[in-house]
């Protein structure tokens, strides 16, 4: 088997939280997550708010120092020492196109910043040419180069953010909910652009989102997270149509389908209760407090991810 582009092994990210004057507790934002992404592939990461999706993306890029576990890029572990080199190969597109662009910089300088940092140009002309090429690539006009970010709409701002990520010619981009701040018509444009860029440049994506339809559309494979753990992973169709984990099933039953007749017929699985606080995780399987099928075994130990055929892995004792 070839080495995957990105391999994440037992990644853990705990944040110390002050709960009292002298007491600190660990918030397990990401707990023992492993997955891999091949070159040119898209892995969708879904889960509800606060389940650690964004933290996975940021820890993967070492924006947070991981508590434990390692990230391998083309078989080479990412460490503090080779981080500057790795930064050229792994990039990120942020969720909020309003706060992720510096209001005091022109588009040209925003896109040019990675070029400046990694000194990817010989002279001013080359820098400008590269910037114009990138702007063209994401569908921005050359005359926008001297404008400021606040003069653009959300979709255009997100394009600027994507151009900035592409500036270093990365092989892998973490897309942290890149379309959730945009309205639906713009979402479609931006998503199609992500797909076009993948075809053109062969980049791999870790596509973080909570919109299941969007993720299903863009991803080759999907991983479902619940409270810092991956509970189900497999091909997009497997996870969508033949989901096994009770949490995934309830997620999928909540997807709106634009057909009133069908919607009236289908059954919604409504979860009871709230997400437990990540500070006080339930023992064993974190989902057991809301699970319809929970049994004694679920309280004892976290179920491991087991293969249910064709790389479709599920972490559940019951199903």
């Amino acid at each position: 088997m070839n080495t995957p582009l990105i391999e994440v092994r037992n990644l853990k990210q705990y944040f110390p939280i002050k709960t009292g004057l002298f007491k600190t507790e660990l918030l397990k934002a990401v707990d023992d997550v492993s997955f891999s992404i091949d070159a040119g592939e898209t892995l969708g990461l879904v889960g509800e708010s606060g389940c650690g999706k964004t933290t996975v993306g940021r820890t993967l890029l070492h924006l947070y120092e991981p508590t434990a576990g390692e990230v391998l890029f083309e078989g080479e572990p990412v460490t503090k020492d080779n981080l500057p080199k790795m930064r050229q190969k792994m990039q990120m597109v942020f969720q909020d196109p309003y706060s992720s662009l510096d209001p005091r910089m022109t588009v040209e300088d925003i896109i040019g910043e990675p070029l400046d940092v990694h000194k990817l140009f010989e002279n001013k002309k080359e820098r400008r040419d590269k910037i114009l090429y990138l702007m063209n690539l994401v569908g921005l006009n050359a005359e926008h180069a001297t404008r400021y970010a606040h003069e653009f709409s959300g979709g255009q701002r997100q394009r600027i953010g994507i151009a900035r990520a592409l500036a270093v010619n990365p092989k892998f981009i973490v897309c942290d909910e890149p379309v959730s701040a945009l309205d639906v018509s713009i979402q479609a444009q931006v998503i199609n652009m992500f797909e076009d860029l993948q075809v053109k440049l062969g980049v791999a994506y870790l596509f973080i989102a909570h919109d299941l339809l969007v993720v299903h559309h863009i991803s080759n494979r999907i991983a479902v997270m619940y409270l810092g753990k991956i509970v189900e992973t497999g091909t997009a169709d497997d996870v969508n149509y033949t989901s096994i984990h009770p949490y995934t099933q309830s997620l999928m039953s909540a997807v709106p389908i634009p057909d009133p007749d069908y919607t009236r017929q289908r059954k919604r699985i409504v979860l009871q209760g709230d997400v437990p606080s990540p500070l006080h995780m339930p023992s064993g399987c974190p989902f057991r407090t809301r699970c319809r099928f929970a049994c004694d075994k679920c309280a004892e130990a976290m179920p491991p991810l087991t293969d249910r055929g064709g790389g479709h892995q599920v972490a559940c004792w019951v199903k």
Partner: peptide, 10 residues
Amino acid sequence: EYILASKSIG
């Protein structure tokens, strides 16, 4: 986030 973006650029 633009500070984080700058960090992720390196």
